[in-house]
Amino acid sequence: MATEPLRALAVAPAPAAGAVRLDLDHPLNRAIRRLGATRVAEHLPPGLRAGAFDDHGWLRREDLLGAATLDLLTAAVASQAGCDDPRLTGTLLLEGYAWQLAAPALGLLLAAGRLPDIDPATLYVRLADDGRVEALAYASGRFATLEDDPEAGHPDATTFADDHALLAWFRRALVRHLEPVVEAVAPRARRGRRALWRSVEDCCSGAMTWIGDELGDGDGARARAGLLLGVEEPLGDPPCFEVIGEDPGAPVVRRRIGCCQSFRAPGGALCPTCPRARVRG
Rank of each mutant, 00 (worst) to 15 (best):
A207W: 00
L94T: 05
L70C: 13
G153Y: 00
D163K: 10
V77Y: 08
A105R: 01
E151K: 04
A135R: 05
H154K: 03
T159H: 07
V185D: 06
A184P: 02
P180A: 05
A137C: 12
L106D: 11
R194Q: 11
L94R: 06
A105K: 01
A207C: 06
D129N: 13
A103E: 02
S205T: 10
G206S: 08
G141V: 03
W99K: 03
L123F: 02
A186C: 07
V182R: 05
A103M: 00
L108A: 03
A67N: 13
F170S: 12
A67H: 14
L73E: 13
S140F: 01
S79R: 14
R194H: 08
A78H: 12
G107H: 01
E179T: 05
E134H: 02
Y97R: 06
L136N: 07
W169T: 09
R176C: 07
P120S: 12
G192N: 07
P180M: 06
P187L: 08
D119S: 12
R126V: 06
S205K: 11
A112Y: 00
A67M: 09
S79N: 15
V200I: 05
M208I: 03
P120Q: 08
L72G: 14
R142M: 11
D71E: 15
E151P: 02
P120G: 07
L72Y: 10
S205H: 12
E183L: 10
E151W: 01
A161R: 10
A78R: 11
L94Q: 08
D163R: 15
F143R: 02
R193D: 11
H154Y: 00
A137F: 00
L72S: 15
L73A: 13
R188L: 09
G153W: 00
E95C: 05
L146T: 05
A67V: 14
A67Y: 04
L110Q: 11
V133A: 09
R87E: 13
E179R: 05
Q80Y: 10
T69F: 12
R193Q: 14
F143S: 09
V77P: 10
D149V: 00
D162N: 13
D156R: 01
C203M: 11
A165N: 07
L136I: 03
A165P: 07
L72N: 14
L146A: 05
A67K: 14
A152W: 00
G96E: 05
L178V: 04
Y124C: 10
A78F: 08
L92G: 11
A103L: 01
T89S: 10
Q80L: 15
D130K: 09
L72R: 14
D119Q: 06
G90W: 01
R172M: 15
G206F: 00
L108G: 03
Y124E: 12
A139I: 02
W99M: 04
G206P: 05
A75P: 10
F160D: 12
L108V: 01
A78W: 05
A184C: 02
P187I: 04
W169A: 15
A75E: 15
A195C: 04
L106C: 07
V125P: 04
Y97G: 03
S140K: 04
H177S: 04
A165C: 08
D119Y: 01
T91I: 05
A105Q: 03
L108C: 02
C204Q: 11
A103T: 02
R171P: 04
A112I: 00
V175N: 11
S205Y: 04
A102K: 02
Q100V: 02
Q100M: 07
D162I: 01
L101Y: 01
